[in-house]
Design a binder for these strands. Structure first.
Lengths: 338, 338
DNA sequence: TTGAAAGCGCTAACAG
DNA sequence: CTGTTAGCGCTTTCAA
């Protein structure tokens, strides 16, 4: 507290033991008499001593830190994942260092540099767009959430995501159950793998039920936000295309779409049904509560944390794996079964 | 990349210079010939070498990392601050390690331990409820956002927040301008200093304009969320208390309040005007766009980052300071001037 | 302008 | 059961 920070050496001196002994009782390995243990513990307690993690990390060539890279912490979906992740890691004594890439490939690269220079023991990459993997030291456990690098075929890597196919499937099912026949989908980001998977699930359900969905009924926005959803739906309406069901692959898109519908005096769900995706709060508390496919961010975060910790601890490369997290439809006011 | 990680020593050998020289060119201090500089730089470039930050930190007894402690990353207000903070820190070569306290005093304490053991160079504490300060090494620059510890009268500490008084003041002014006379306020967390300041600002404006606001018209929720806002307003309506203007000290509260009003068939803003606080997205995209006092999270984050960096760099204790960030009212559909 | 060497705080191998 | 010591990768005197 007062100026100089205390170290194992200080503790050792005060206890009349060696630093090695102190280290042993701190880490509870090796042998020591109960007597010394108590003596040392007492002094540690008294001075509220915490071993310097930098030194420990340097020595052991590993740290109790994992890094995460997300496109946008301000986005509720990512924030919730981080929340869950951090909570779990913390309970295991790990800390989380966080990088926001703002979707920039440039920044992503820099982040990775930082991460390895900082000696994090594990890396979690959410929704990366660039093939950042080549930069990574292949020894450090890395787990991708959602988007993943298809070239990720070497090294200590895993991939985790919601069951997006099932998500798309459920959305189509719901719309069809509501007797919608003329479907329209507004996808998430075009280049994204996740987008494709969701769309595939949607299309699969349509085909199963004998509903056709032409290509020109699938719209890909340039951004994924409220205004974009609104704009696209207005444009669709303007074009005269008939539709009675919309699947928006993002709740923000759905919220915008909903507003466009309501503005035009279209009854929801009577004339048009709407299903969103993500399960963030706007789906619950927007203009109208929106039926949506909710991703279990708490579970995603927890599973990711567990996995990365396991990979760190086992050290030996865990076999490559892809973990699928279940996804659910929550029915609210924008759909009604008929 | 292949197994072993490269170090200054390796670089030195490859260049036929000493590690000292390598270190010098990396950090651009001391002298070296242009020739050696180029040679060394080339090799560093070639191997994409990044100095081990653990070793550097250990040696220099400081790190390029700052820690932040927030109650809930999932909360948009905090998330946006973190976003801005991280972005700025990153641009200066610093990383951000993040802790979620979940409002638990127990966890807060642990977090602080972790933070100092990790040798972060600066700490940012958002909305801490407990007097966590005593635990802190007083040498490490600490900045409080919003709530601050009144016992914080020693050490390298600063305090930063929105101008909450002005926020409360503006809210009252708006309501009064809308010809509301029977005001009601639903505060944020009762124990919070910020709550008191907002309320003070509100009351000050009322008094200035000759509007009275009795104590029993100020409600303090036990939680600060949608449902609580809704419940309280329903209860007020049920009690028969007359009111024509509500100030909710949180947008979530306001959103809930709005729903209660609408559910009861009360016209907003014709019968009752409503002002929220924070400026998060629910205020913009909820049932109705809510007039609110918006906090400039981008600015808060940036100022906090700048301040903590300055404190770290100057090292000498900066004089104690309190930075006030301007706050604004954004008028939307829940108020209309008369 | 450069190199040799000490040392940051810690752990682990080895010796006792 | 405990102590001595080397060394993790880096920066920084001090000396050349």
């Amino acid at each position: 507290m007062n100026g100089k920070k205390i170290s194992v050496k200080d503790i050792a001196e005060m206890c009349n033991v060696s630093v090695a002994t102190v280290s042993r009782v701190i880490n509870q390995n090796g042998r020591f008499s109960q007597e010394t243990e108590e003596k040392v513990k007492k002094v540690i307690e008294k001075y509220n001593f915490k071993p310097n993690q930098l030194a420990k990390g340097l020595r052991e060539n590993k740290t109790k830190a994992v890094g995460i890279m997300v496109p946008d912490i301000g986005n509720e979906y990512f924030a919730k994942i981080i929340l869950s992740l951090q909570t779990f890691l913390f309970s295991k004594g790990y800390s989380l260092v966080i990088y926001n890439t703002n979707e920039s490939a440039e920044i992503e690269k820099q982040c990775v540099s930082y991460l390895v220079a900082q000696n994090v023991s594990g890396i979690i990459i959410v929704n990366s767009k660039t093939s950042v993997f080549k930069q990574l030291n292949k020894d450090i456990p890395t787990i991708y959430i959602d988007e993943y690098d298809r070239y990720t075929d070497v090294g200590n890597v895993a991939w985790l995501s919601s069951d997006h196919f099932q998500g798309g499937y459920l959305a189509a099912q719901e719309l069809i159950d509501c007797k919608c026949r003329d479907l329209v989908v507004i996808t998430a980001l075009k280049e994204s793998t996740v987008t494709k998977i969701r769309t595939n699930g949607f299309v699969a359900a349509c085909e199963e039920r004998g509903i056709s969905l032409q290509k020109e009924r699938i719209f890909s926005p340039s951004k994924v936000d409220f205004n974009e959803g609104k704009t696209i739906v207005k444009r669709i309406i303007g074009s005269g295309m008939h539709f009675d069901g919309i699947f928006c692959q993002t709740d923000w898109l759905a919220a915008g779409a909903l507003e466009a519908l309501l503005d035009k005096g279209i009854q929801v769900p009577d004339q048009v049904s709407l299903v969103g995706f993500d399960g963030i709060s706007i789906s619950q508390f927007g203009r109208m509560p929106i039926t949506t496919i909710v991703q279990d961010t708490a579970l995603i975060g927890k599973k990711a944390a567990k996995l990365v910790l396991r990979m760190i601890e086992e050290q030996k490369k865990t076999k490559k794996q892809h973990i699928l997290v279940p996804i659910n439809l929550v029915r609210r006011k924008t759909t009604r079964k008929k």
